[in-house]
Design a protein around this nucleic acid. Structure first.
Length: 444
RNA sequence: GACCCCUUCGUCUAACGGUUAGGACACAUCCCUUUCACGGAUGCGAUACGAGUUCGAUUCUCGUAGGGGUCGCCA
């Protein structure tokens, strides 16, 4: 049994972003691991907005955080738009709480005021041990750093202070965060002790690096969650890929569902070293998940991109067949259009390559005419009936059936790539198929 | 500069003292095939370096090098 299930009190973990940009992929993964821990243990996942820096906060950034987390399926049990017993969940609304805790520190004699009014916290200057869930015991010697400022001259508080106060007030039991915080954690523990509180269990997860090995920055491909939404990724695929960066589920395949991740997650399995981001593998995983979609779900996922490209989905049953016929050939929602556009319009272009191939063979017009006549006689308009009709034409024209297939493909789609020809013809229907052979013949 | 974390194929990783160091992505070749893809097969390819402990180190210890992080009146 994982260590986490043997503990009695319910876990309380949080994600505490500051709304100063977009939702960063590294932050999303931190949120993901916290969420997994909560869901795995039946605990609570809390969202807290650290918006103490009024100058840099934006409503857009706040929306990006909410949208991004929800898109990934990381729902929070307490926090903005949800509520909870430990609110408010915006630091900008918790000034009085901070004032009260600050007073405790003053009374304990652990503060002093600078000439300009800023207030510093007196470090205990004792060695401090961090029993880290991921890194193990990390020992910091008594510090020689200057005491830490916790309150500005204007009365507002610094990150380290509000972060600790909120984690105490919100009853956090575990803090899973990026390893970039490890070097400051002893300061937080010092604060917990000064406030007479028991520190939570810490777990510092490795950082996400870009392909060249440095910390993911704003400009790096895939840095914002929004970019995945816009690129046509499936949230379950991005969720899956993020799981794989820093953690290995003990499964046969790397493709896992959210449910599997929840069932298998264990903090003690989190890796110790940083991981580089690989968009190619993320894309591959998207393809794997895309194949699981069908019918209405597939249409819902792809529709925005088809409509953006001017294609109109009429009958959903027809559209589902069209999309399913090519879903294994693409890896992203944004890639469907060139594979399916001819299903949704009659005026599709005929590629130059197609015309060249047709004109290179003097038999093309005769074969097209024969196919038209043969298909008109097809006993049934399904794969078997179409196959039989084409075979008959091939026999009669003394060619291999394989030689006729490209002609049909060209007629139906005007291009060289697409789904299986018989499937394609079946979906289009007899009337349209014959009309398209006619149309191509007239162009020769 | 001080302190902290890390180091297995190009990338993500498996191995918790004993394996011909395994898998996935990528790449290459082949098979399948009307196209593209999927699928299947094969190939390519790694324990940073140096000591030590041990019968035996990818695994434990130390050193070196390299990478990352922290040291704000940012979060």
């Amino acid at each position: 049994m994982p260590w986490c299930l043997s503990m009695s009190s319910p876990f309380r973990v949080r994600f505490a972003p500051s709304p100063t940009g977009y939702l960063h992929v590294g932050g999303a993964r931190t949120a993901l691991f916290n969420w997994l821990l909560a869901r795995r243990t039946g605990g609570k996942f809390i969202l807290r907005i650290e918006d103490t820096d009024q100058a840099r906060n934006t409503p857009e950034a706040m929306k990006a955080i909410f949208d991004g987390l929800r898109w990934l399926g990381l729902d929070w049990d307490e926090g903005p738009e949800v509520g909870g017993d430990h609110g408010p969940y915006f630091q900008s609304q918790r000034q009085s709480i901070y004032d009260a805790y600050f007073q405790k520190l003053v009374e304990a004699g652990r503060t002093y005021t600078e000439e300009n009014g800023a207030v510093r916290f007196k470090f205990s200057r004792q060695p401090i041990l961090i029993p880290d869930l991921v890194c193990g015991d990390v020992q910091f010697a008594a510090t020689e750093e200057p005491d830490m400022t916790i309150r500005r001259p204007d009365g507002s508080y610094i990150f380290h202070f509000v972060n600790v106060v909120d984690d105490i007030e919100m009853r956090m039991t575990h803090v899973i965060r990026g390893e970039d915080h490890l070097s400051n954690t002893w300061k937080h523990i010092d604060l917990y002790h000064a406030l007479g509180a028991e520190p939570p269990r810490f777990g510092h997860i490795p950082l996400l690096l870009n392909p060249s090995g440095s910390k993911m920055s704003k400009r790096d491909e895939g840095a914002s969650i929004e970019s995945y939404i816009q690129a046509g990724f499936l949230p379950q695929a991005v969720f899956n890929y993020l799981c794989l960066l820093g953690w290995t589920p003990k499964t046969e395949t790397e493709k896992i569902t959210q449910e599997q991740a929840v069932a298998l997650f264990d903090v003690s399995d989190i890796h110790h070293s940083n991981a580089r981001f690989d968009m190619t593998k993320c894309t591959w995983l998207n393809q794997q998940h895309l194949r699981d979609l069908s019918g209405a779900a597939l249409i819902a996922h792809v529709r925005p991109w088809l409509e953006k490209d001017g294609l109109i989905i009429g009958d959903e049953g027809y559209a589902a067949l069209a999309l399913e016929s090519v879903k294994e050939k693409v890896s992203m929602a944004s890639e469907f259009t060139p594979w399916v556009h001819y299903f949704f319009r009659e005026d599709f272009p005929i590629e130059d390559e197609v015309m060249a191939k047709l004109k290179a063979n003097a038999q093309s017009p005769a074969l097209l005419a024969a196919l038209s006549a043969g298909l008109k006689q097809a006993a049934s308009w399904d794969e078997a009936g179409i196959t039989a009709a084409v075979t008959d034409v091939a026999t009669e024209q003394k060619v291999k059936a394989g030689a006729l297939m490209p002609l049909l493909r060209f007629s139906m789609s005007g291009q060289t790539r697409g789904p299986d020809v018989k499937i394609m013809i079946g979906i289009l229907g007899k009337e349209r198929a014959l009309a398209r052979i006619e149309r191509l013949s007239n162009l020769l």
